[in-house]
Computed example of a mutant assay.
Amino acid sequence: MIAGISVAVAVLAGCGPLPELDGDPTAGKDGGAKSDSETGRGVNPLDNPDGTGPGLKVISSDKDRAKARDLIDKVATKGRGAKTGYDRDEFGYAWADSVDDVPWGRNGCDTRNDLLKRDGRDIKYRSGSNCVIASMTLYDPYTGKTIDWTKSKASEVQIDHVMPLSYDWQMGASRWSESKRKQIANDPLNLIPVDGSTNGSKSDSGPATWLPPRRDIRCSYAVRFAQVALKYDLPVTSADKAAMLEQCA
């Protein structure tokens, strides 16, 4: 847990009490605030359009929030389709490395370990491997928690599909080729390692019914959701788009 911060995880981010997580006075090596690389808190999604930078940084300036709204405005809307025929396997087996046209595809490591390496700190690998991560420290942008993770308790960290695969299916991915579905399932733009129980509460919800418990990261989350939708030419529901815009108001 980061010093001075108390975290309460809400099951549905649109309901109930919200954690007070704005502002972190931790000091960096120069005596000032720690840099993003020191804290592992990630980069501004507006500056990370391919998702290869770690985590999510809070979008706080009026200028960036205006840019965020402009980006979200470009996302098309339509009603959510039927879930008929959806199966996780329709997007390829989980964390496949054999994916073309996404960062780190076919690099010899599975997608989950690629994402843990991207966002983790103090990483230690399994003996004899330069790919399989055995332990690390992760800063979870959704809750503000720092998680000391080991592979023996793997489910404590889960990889969130920001735009859930079932949601993708209902918004048009059911008509895609298998290769394109594998891309969105393994694209680092759509993937963030987070607290496992928090990710479990999300299920396949859109932003109108689920947002990260941490209030000040929600605009960044909305931007990432929009970035994925625009890259893959997927619409969102009108309610979800309204919720996304509201987070960056």
Rank of each mutant, 00 (worst) to 15 (best):
S6C: 09
V9P: 00
V9M: 01
A10S: 13
A13L: 12
A13T: 12
L21S: 14
D24T: 08
S37P: 03
V43F: 08
P45H: 03
N48C: 06
G53Y: 01
P54W: 12
K57M: 11
K57I: 01
V58S: 09
D62L: 12
D64I: 03
A66L: 09
A66Q: 12
V75P: 08
A76K: 15
K78L: 02
G81K: 08
K83A: 15
R88I: 04
W95R: 00
A96C: 06
D97W: 02
V99H: 01
D101E: 12
P103L: 08
C109D: 11
R118E: 07
R121N: 07
K124T: 15
S127F: 06
P141E: 09
K145V: 07
I147T: 09
S155C: 04
E156K: 13
E156L: 11
V157Q: 06
Q158W: 04
Q158C: 03
Q158K: 13
Q158M: 12
H161P: 06
M163P: 00
M163E: 08
L165M: 08
Y167D: 12
M171R: 02
M171K: 01
S177A: 11
E178R: 12
S179Q: 13
S179A: 14
K180Y: 05
R181E: 08
R181D: 08
N186G: 07
L191M: 09
P193F: 04
G200F: 01
K202C: 07
K202G: 07
S203K: 13
P207S: 01
P207T: 02
T209N: 11
W210Q: 08
L211T: 14
P212H: 03
P213T: 03
R214E: 09
A222M: 04
V223K: 03
A229T: 09
A229F: 05
L230E: 09
Y232P: 04
D240I: 03
D240V: 02
A242F: 04
A242H: 00
A243V: 07
C248R: 05
